[in-house]
C-alpha cells in the first residue's frame, strides 16, 4: 500500500442498481484503466450517469436505489454500509452537467475542500488557491476579483472553477458527467484541453453523448445500452472497429 506509484483504482463487480421497479444498471463488470481517459457513451437513459455516480456513491437518494454487487475503490467496496465514504470521495473530483459553484467567493470555492481536510494558514491556502486556479487556466481572469461571489462568473468560467475546486482536494480520479453540455464551444474546448493535459496524472472518467468528443479525448471507451455494458475497449477499436452489432449501429447513428 505504501508503493509510491499507487493510484486509486476503480473496479466494478456485478453491479446492479434498481430504482423501484426500474432496473437501471444490469450486471456491470469492468476495471477502469488507470491514468487514462475513459469515456462512457450511449444513448440517453442508458444508465451512464447512474454508473458514474455509483463510483462515488452519489446516487439519487430520493428514489431509494437498491444496489447489489460491488464498486471496489482502493480495495474497499464503497456500497458496504460500514465504509465511510467521505475519504473515498475526496479521491474523486466531480464535474457535473452544469457548474454548481458553492455559495461563496471564488477564493473560498477553491479553499473549501483543503480547509475541510485540515489545511490551515493563510499563506498555504493562498498558494493552493492560486496553484489550482492556474491549473484550471482561470487565474488570469479572476486574480483581481478573488473575493467576489463565484456565481458572477460566466458559465464557462464557473465550470473551470469547479474543476479547480475539485483538483484542490488532490484527487486521483476525475469524474465528469457530460461536463461540457451547458458550455459554449470555446469553454468546451478549454475543458477538453484540460482533460488532455490532466490524463497523464489522473484517471478520468467522462460521460458524454457526443461521439466526436469521445473521439477527441478518450483513450478507452465503454458503450452502454439499456443499462447494460455492451462493449468496452481502446477508443480506436470501439469507434472504428466495434465487435458488437449494437455498438456499430450506435456509432453509425442508427440507434441513438
Amino acid at each position: 500500500m505504501s508503493d509510491n506509484n499507487f493510484k486509486t483504482h476503480i473496479s466494478v463487480q456485478n453491479l446492479n442498481v434498481h430504482y423501484g421497479k426500474n432496473h437501471i444498471l444490469k450486471n456491470i463488470n469492468i476495471d477502469i484503466p488507470d491514468k487514462k481517459l475513459t469515456a462512457i457513451i450511449g444513448p440517453s437513459g442508458c444508465g451512464k450517469t447512474t454508473l458514474l455516480k455509483s463510483f462515488n456513491r452519489l446516487l439519487d437518494t430520493s428514489q431509494s436505489p437498491m444496489v447489489t454487487g460491488k464498486v471496489v475503490v482502493n480495495g474497499e467496496n464503497i456500497f458496504d454500509p460500514k465504509v465511510e465514504i467521505t475519504h473515498l470521495r475526496k479521491k474523486m473530483g466531480l464535474l457535473s452537467q452544469r457548474p454548481y459553484p458553492l455559495p461563496m467567493s471564488i477564493y473560498d470555492n477553491v479553499a473549501y475542500g483543503p480547509k475541510i481536510h485540515g489545511l490551515r494558514g493563510k499563506k498555504n491556502i493562498d498558494e493552493i488557491v492560486e496553484h489550482y486556479l492556474r491549473k484550471a487556466s482561470l487565474w488570469e481572469e479572476v486574480k483581481d476579483r478573488l473575493h467576489t461571489p463565484a456565481v458572477r462568473l460566466s458559465i464557462g468560467q464557473q465550470q473551470r472553477l469547479c474543476m479547480a475546486r475539485g483538483l484542490a482536494v488532490e484527487p486521483d480520479i476525475i469524474l465528469g458527467d457530460e461536463p461540457t453540455s451547458a458550455l459554449d464551444p470555446h469553454s468546451t474546448q478549454s475543458i477538453e484541453a484540460m482533460f488532455n493535459s490532466l490524463k497523464e496524472n489522473y484517471t478520468i472518467i467522462v460521460v458524454t453523448h457526443i461521439l466526436r468528443q469521445a473521439r477527441r479525448i478518450a483513450d478507452y471507451i465503454m458503450f452502454m445500452y439499456m443499462g447494460e455494458l455492451i462493449e468496452h475497449g481502446p477508443a480506436e477499436q470501439i469507434l472504428d472497429d466495434p465487435k458488437e452489432k449494437m455498438t456499430k449501429e450506435y456509432i453509425q447513428g442508427i440507434i441513438s
Binding site: L58, T86, K90, L94, Y100, Y112, V169
Partner: peptide
C-alpha cells in the same frame, strides 16, 4: 441536489455541507 453533491464530492461530510454550504 447538485450543490450538495458538489460538496460531498469534495469529501465534505453532511455536517460540513449543512453548516458551510
Amino acid at each position: 441536489k447538485e450543490l450538495l453533491d458538489a460538496s460531498y464530492s469534495l469529501g465534505a461530510t453532511k455536517f460540513e455541507t449543512a453548516f458551510k454550504v
